[in-house]
Amino acid sequence: MAELKLPVDEKSIRALKVGDFVELTGRMITGRDAAHKWLLEDFRADVAPFLKDSVIYHCGPVVAKKGDGSWSFVAAGPTTSIREEPYQADVIGRYGLRGVIGKGGMGAKTLAGLGKHGAVYLHAVGGAAQVLARAIPRVERVFMLDEFGVPEALWVIEVQRFPVMVTMDSNGGSLHDEVEARSQAKLKELLARKA
């Protein structure tokens, strides 16, 4: 398994293929439904440096505030990505993202955006909130906490060997499309069976 350092350049991202298992180390940011809409309503210059050449994690964490006022992630698995389908490709292009982490995969518009801008979709294991929280040793800062609440805020985090699978790459490959096509064909076969 390969370790990938963040921030990352376009060439390293374009070398990744569907089926690769990688571990991420460095700085990234969380963002989900409210964040994606907000990132496109205007150019958010204060958040932009945290997106450039890094990845956005579709995650609404459980967060604890420690005695010294700092934060820590108590549980932090991925949320379903497809809800960001209308926004994702534009967020990637506008802010120079190199990747998206989530679960469930995304659609044709995002897949085209990955190819155009040189980015990948990275699948974390859904529900694995403890394994993944342990790969997030530090919370650096947070944007829009009061406005969006804990799950929807944009959390800048440091990750260490954060495990993900490449399920959509920058060459048009999508594991989700493959599995869906196969299961649709199998369904047809099962529905042809007698009662």
Partner: peptide, 24 residues
């Protein structure tokens, strides 16, 4: 790999009394 991670996660959550999944 996914099922290994899931099963490791189940044990960690129980030991730490912490949510199995962040979407509670």
């Amino acid at each position: 790999i996914a099922l290994n991670t899931i099963l490791e996660n189940v044990d960690l959550a129980r030991e730490a009394s912490a949510p199995i999944c962040q979407d509670t």
